[in-house]
Design a protein around this nucleic acid. Structure first.
Ligand SMILES: [Mn+2]
Ligand SMILES: [Mn+2]
Ligand SMILES: [Zn+2]
Ligand SMILES: [Zn+2]
Lengths: 142, 142
DNA sequence: TAGCAAATGAGAATCATTTGCAAAAAGGAG
DNA sequence: CTCCTTTTTGCAAATGATTCTCATTTGCTA
């Protein structure tokens, strides 16, 4: 787990700092989609001195080395998660805010076709849906 | 063209103001993906008094009535375009910033399957790719 | 262990977007 | 067309998210 972090940092000539390990562990332990504030809050529980600026810097660094991805889930701020083994996409409910992750192989296939047709080098694929989840659809206005 | 705007506004009991028409026309005339600043700049050419706040408010209103959609194209700010006749998705080049629009029916099909399987009501579908366009891939570092 | 470059903390700065409020304008009734 | 009510606007200040500056600390290598 922290192996992966250390080797990726070393490979990019980046230093293995306490703060980077901490942010990494926070992301590993919470399998949710945390925003920067939430990462900062969790991190402070173990290192009260870690600054929000460092959290932002670290998230950017981890994104650059390919360990973390950033999602825009319809809010004004970003959410982060560790790059998953198998890629997946996101749905969020406009009413309750719940997030549903899903995969759909057709998407990558469509992307591959486009990439070939237009000679594009694709680095990231974000598919984001929103609407109403099952529960929120079927409940009357109170 | 402005018919559509007027009828949608009327249908929602919203007033047809000069500013709303202006923002609408700006979006119609530029078939690009403008951000709020750009809309404001274009609008000011015809009404120097229109304020940025009104542009933001108007974009939000047009989005609510379903005339405009908002895209996150990897930058910190949002871009806007008139809801297109046929839905399409976006690729942006990390190097030159160019935007390529494309469609891929497989995507909506995958979305429909998910929607059925999970009983979701899908309101918006955003597929966003980034990477390097053909030109930027094949040019050496200068 | 010493030395240097990279990383951090704290706070200010910047950028994007929203809000409060008084003044202006839209739409309906007469 | 005029009056009235309510919505919308402009402006400026406020907020929220993220980045930057710079003095200080720390990781890494010799
Ligand atoms: Mn959030
Ligand atoms: Mn832009
Ligand atoms: Zn819900
Ligand atoms: Zn390019």
């Amino acid at each position: 787990m922290t192996e992966r972090l250390v080797s990726m940092l070393r490979a990019s000539d980046l230093r293995v700092t306490r703060q980077r390990q901490l942010v990494w562990e926070v992301l590993q332990q919470s399998h949710e989609h945390l925003d920067a504030e939430a990462v900062h809050t969790c991190a402070k529980a173990r290192d009260p001195n870690i600054s929000l600026a460092t959290v932002y810097r670290t998230l950017a660094t981890l994104k650059e080395v390919g360990l973390v991805e950033e999602h825009r889930l319809g809010e004004e701020h970003a959410h982060f998660e560790i790059v998953p083994q198998t890629p997946h996409y996101h749905f969020t409910c406009q009413a309750c805010g719940c997030i549903i992750e899903f995969d759909a192989p057709q998407v990558m296939q469509a992307v591959r076709e486009l990439s070939k047709r237009e000679d594009l080098l694709i680095q990231h694929v974000h598919l984001f849906l929103n609407g109403l989840c099952s529960q929120c659809q079927h409940q009357q206005e109170g």
